[in-house]
C-alpha cells in the first residue's frame, strides 16, 4: 500500500501532465474555451433559480449563494466519478503498451475537475462579494477540512469505479442513473431542514440524512459560506441548516473522512488485484 502511494507520488508529473492534457483537449477548438467551465455553474444557477424561486416559489434568501456553496462540491464529486469511471477503458492504448501506476488515470480525472472547481469557486466568491452578504469568519475555516474530505472521498470512489468498469462496462451507464438520483436526495437545491422535518414526523432522527456521505461535506460548505440561516419571516421564520456548533460539523467530517480512508485503502487493494489483468481485458 505504502509502496503504491510512493509509486504514484513518483509519477506526480505525469499526473499533472494528464490533467493538463484533459483540460486542453476538452476546450481545444472551442471559441470560449475555459469560459465554459464558468458558464456551466452560471447556467445551473439561472435554471434552478427560475424553477425553484419563480415557478415553485421557494423563499430561500440569496438562493444563488446557497445553491453554489453546495452544488460546486457536488459537481466536483459527480463529474470526477463520471470521468474516472471510463478513464482506464478510454486509455486502453496506453494501458496496453506502457507501464505506469494505473491509478494515475482516475486521479487525473479528479484532478481536472479540481481545476474546474477552483475556477468555479471564483464565481461563487464573486457572487458573495457582489451581493454584500459577506463571510462569517468563525465558520469559513471549515471549508478546508470539508474539501480535504471531499477530495479523499472522490478519489476513493474514482479508483474503485475505474477498476470495476474494466470488467463490467455497464458501470458507466449505471453511474449516470445513480448520480442523478443521488443529487436529488442530497440537500443541495433545498435546505437540510426540509428532509429533517419529514424524518422527524416519522420519528427518525435528522442525522439519518448523514448516511449519505456527501451530505457531511455539502452541508458544512453551506454552513461555512452561506450566511443566511433562516428562511421565512416573523412567526414562520425557521432555520435552514442544522443549528449545531462547529464541533458537530467537524465530527461529521471526521467520521466521513475516516470512512473515506478505509474505502480508499479497499479501493487501492481492489484496484491492485484487478490491475494485473487490465491489459488482457481491454
Amino acid at each position: 500500500m505504502a509502496g503504491h502511494l510512493a509509486d504514484i507520488w513518483s509519477y506526480r508529473e505525469l499526473l499533472a501532465n494528464l490533467v493538463r492534457k484533459e483540460l486542453k483537449v476538452k476546450y481545444k477548438n472551442s471559441v470560449l474555451g475555459f469560459l465554459w467551465s464558468l458558464l456551466n455553474p452560471i447556467s445551473q444557477v439561472i435554471v434552478f433559480t427560475v424553477v425553484f424561486q419563480i415557478v415553485l416559489k421557494n423563499t430561500i434568501p440569496f438562493f444563488p449563494i446557497f445553491l453554489l456553496s453546495g452544488m460546486l462540491a457536488w459537481n466536483l464529486f459527480a463529474l470526477s466519478l463520471a470521468g474516472a469511471t471510463g478513464s482506464i477503458t478510454g486509455n486502453h492504448q496506453l494501458v496496453n503498451k506502457v507501464y505506469f501506476p494505473r491509478e494515475i488515470l482516475p486521479l487525473a480525472a479528479v484532478g481536472a475537475n479540481c481545476v474546474h472547481f477552483l475556477l468555479q469557486s471564483i464565481v461563487l466568491l464573486a457572487t458573495i462579494m457582489v451581493t454584500g452578504v459577506g463571510f462569517d469568519w468563525r465558520w469559513v475555516w471549515l471549508v478546508v477540512p470539508a474539501l480535504a474530505v471531499l477530495l479523499l472521498l472522490t478519489s476513493a470512489f474514482a479508483i474503485f469505479l475505474s477498476a470495476i468498469n474494466v470488467y463490467a462496462r455497464d458501470t458507466q451507464h449505471l453511474l449516470d442513473v445513480v448520480l442523478m438520483a443521488w443529487m436529488w436526495v442530497t440537500p443541495l437545491v433545498y435546505q437540510w431542514e426540509l428532509p429533517a422535518k419529514k424524518l422527524h414526523e416519522h420519528g427518525i432522527p435528522a442525522s439519518f440524512i448523514l448516511v449519505n456521505p456527501i451530505v457531511s461535506v455539502t452541508v458544512t460548505l453551506q454552513r461555512a459560506l452561506y450566511q443566511q440561516h433562516y428562511v421565512g419571516a416573523g412567526a414562520a421564520r425557521e432555520p435552514m441548516l442544522p443549528m449545531n456548533g462547529q464541533w458537530w460539523y467537524l465530527r461529521n467530517l471526521g467520521i466521513i473522512g475516516a470512512c473515506s480512508v478505509v474505502v480508499f485503502i479497499l479501493a487501492m487493494r481492489l484496484f491492485h488485484r484487478l490491475e494485473g489483468n487490465f491489459a488482457e481485458e481491454l
Binding site: V25, K97, V98
Partner: peptide, 12 residues
C-alpha cells in the same frame, strides 16, 4: 518501445 507514440493525443 512497445508501441511508438502510444498515448499521443491527436488534438494536441
Amino acid at each position: 518501445l512497445l508501441e511508438l507514440g502510444a498515448g499521443f493525443h491527436p488534438e494536441l
